[in-house]
Design a protein around this nucleic acid. Sequence first.
DNA 1: CGCCAGGGCCTCA
DNA 2: TGAGGCCATGGC
Length: 232
Amino acid sequence: MNEKINKIFSALDKKYGWLGWWPSTPPDKEYPEYHKSKNYKYSEYEKFEIAIGAILTQNTAWSNVVKALYNLKKLKCSSPEKMLEIEETKILEAIKPSGYYNQKLKKMRYLCEFLIKNNWRDLEKLDISELRKRLLDIWGIGKETADSIILYVFNKPIFVVDAYTRRILQRCEIIDAKKDYDEIRILIEKNIPKKVNLYKNYHAAIVEHCKYNCKIKPLCEHCIIKNYCKLN
DNA sequence: CGCCAGGGCCTCA
DNA sequence: TGAGGCCATGGC
């Protein structure tokens, strides 16, 4: 067991509190927002929006994704079926702020086709590894995107490993520079309690911490995990 | 202005 | 199987 992992993550979790991930746009709102309730129930649209958002945020600042999601909602792009009906040029224009828009258009279309062939109820019944396999078969959905969808849309416990997670674990000397995605994921999952809301908020807290403190050029002064970090 | 952002695919050894 | 190139916008 690696006690450090849970100590570090739970310290971040405690500092930032419940962050209400994944942000989504409630029926009566225009922009995605974070959710105060720990058992907030996503509407069908919000589930779709999260899956789309997971693609749109690939290597992209969330603030740019918000613009794209706002535009898509205005376009009444409210379901996979609708998205496939809408003209591609309009979708392209809508998602332009999120960058890589040609690739992302194609990725979203493949995802839509998948979601039309497989409805939520059937997918929910699958175990995590089968669901993951199916998602990874979709062009444009890699491990992090698949795991984000599994955790935040399907509410199943799988830990999302992103560039920020790697950065923190590297700086805390828990992993070395190049370690395989699934090795890191399993290492983390072995060392923290297997609870969906914990997985969600640990990941959210990692992102939050890296956005404002553990940046590439780190701001270490008020960092609460500096005692674990080789930079200090 | 250059750097960076909640990755993934393709190519080529 | 891994490293490197490519995709692209907007905030700082």
